[in-house]
Nucleic acid binder design. Sequence first.
DNA 1: AGTAGACCTGGTAT
DNA 2: GATACCAGGTCTA
Length: 298
Amino acid sequence: MSAGPADPRWSDWQPLAGYPAVTAEVLAETVDGGQAFRWHAQPDGTWFGQWSEIVATLRLGADGRVAWRCPAGSETRTAAALATYFGTDADFPALTDALPWRTDAHLARCLRDFPGLRILRQPFGETLLGFLCSATKQIVQIKQMQELLAARHGAPVPGTGGAFRRLPTWPELAACTEAELRACQLGFRARYIWETAQFVAARPDWLRETETLPYPEAKDRLLGLPGVGEKVADCVLLFGAGRLEAFPVDVWILKTLGRRYALDGWKPPQLAQFGRAHFGPLAGLAQQFLFAWERRHG
DNA sequence: AGTAGACCTGGTAT
DNA sequence: GATACCAGGTCTA
């Protein structure tokens, strides 16, 4: 049930405006490095991805520029969605330059090794779903869960002849049984997702409000959901709401701060505090570079 | 307050 | 071919 682009008519390739030239490694790290879970590398080297009701394929040119195409007829809304998703209105060079790399040699090395890496701006609800699935799972398996959820419980993407399915919305998830969710390889996460779905579906504005609240309040609200702890809440806010101050402490960050910052033995809460103090209000952006570097070289 | 175990299960290592 | 062990956390005793 791999969601492939094996279908209909596609638009012409168009340049991804406002996006820097990147290497294949940086593009892969951006779309398939743990921020998002619905990008699939194709045999021809392109990336096929979906979010919300958007379907797109990405291609990296020899010059490092990214081009995209989408099912014919959806060019206009896809162009707008891509701009939001890849944050082309944000000045990532300036944001990255504002990180304390001048006084942090390791951070400087991470920035140098992944030029152009950035934080995605994904749909909030889908980001929550993705990271509720992520507990003690590897990216490959999380992606598999998302595809099963979309195939079995998601609606067809309009205007594509039924070839693609979106992820189920939270009301749609609330209409599923826990057993149906469990059958999507969710394991013990099924109960968290089902209970979260009941809660969210009963409060139509809750997610939208949470997305726009200041970081501390938004995080408090997310932490009230079953299956959402510190790490998941920060991932949702960082990758699904553009809150660059969110600093998720996962095993890789645990590892990298222990090894490269001599903080071996520190507990996640202490490391989170260190991250905020050391990296500042854009700690989440710094985290992404540290994370990528440690996964690649650590 | 802080710390082990349990929680599902597909994949990978012995 | 079986069996053991682990995986980008969270919750609870």
